[in-house]
């Protein structure tokens, strides 16, 4: 299919301080209906969106973290997380939530969507996308 474009959603903001993270998530969920090739990128403070263990009860806000784990159902299979951004913030892959998808070409085996990439690789991923949506 020649009309399938590579969409890259770039997330650079922490989850609660601004509305960007939630807005990005909603756009990804809506965009999934159009059956394009979707990838998510998390860099800078965006990596905080994937840090597990949110408890927003005291904040009086909805905890939208579980929705990230539903993205596999929405055919989001590529989630790129920048290693340097994690390290600068004292984080590693172990601090992140699990995100999975079912691989239709491999008997629906459940596989991790998260791919830790270097800053250099992230630059290439951006260069490679047809459309970039930044949040």
């Amino acid at each position: 299919m020649s009309d399938v474009k590579k969409f890259l959603y770039v997330n650079r903001k922490a989850p609660h301080g601004t509305i960007y993270a939630l807005e990005s998530l909603e756009v990804v969920l809506i965009g999934a209906a159009f059956e394009q090739d979707v990838a998510l990128a998390f860099l800078d403070d965006g990596v905080f969106q994937l840090v597990k263990g949110w408890d927003t009860s005291e904040l009086g806000a909805k905890n939208f973290q579980p929705a990230y784990t539903a993205l596999g159902d929405y055919d989001v299979q590529k989630v790129y997380v920048e290693r340097e951004s994690l390290e600068e913030r004292g984080l590693s892959e172990d601090d992140l939530i699990e995100m999975t998808y079912e691989d239709e070409d491999d008997d629906f085996a459940e596989k991790s969507s998260i791919r830790i990439v270097s800053r250099e690789e992230m630059a290439k991923i951006m260069a490679d996308a047809d459309v970039i949506l930044s949040f």
Binding site: A14, P15, H16, F48, V51, K52, G53, W54, D55, T56, S57, E58, L59, A61, N63, G90, D95
Partner: peptide, 14 residues
């Protein structure tokens, strides 16, 4: 502030 720490998954051990 505890509410902001909790919301972001920042527990005492971190």
């Amino acid at each position: 502030l505890s509410a902001d720490l909790k919301a972001r998954g920042i527990t005492a051990d971190k």
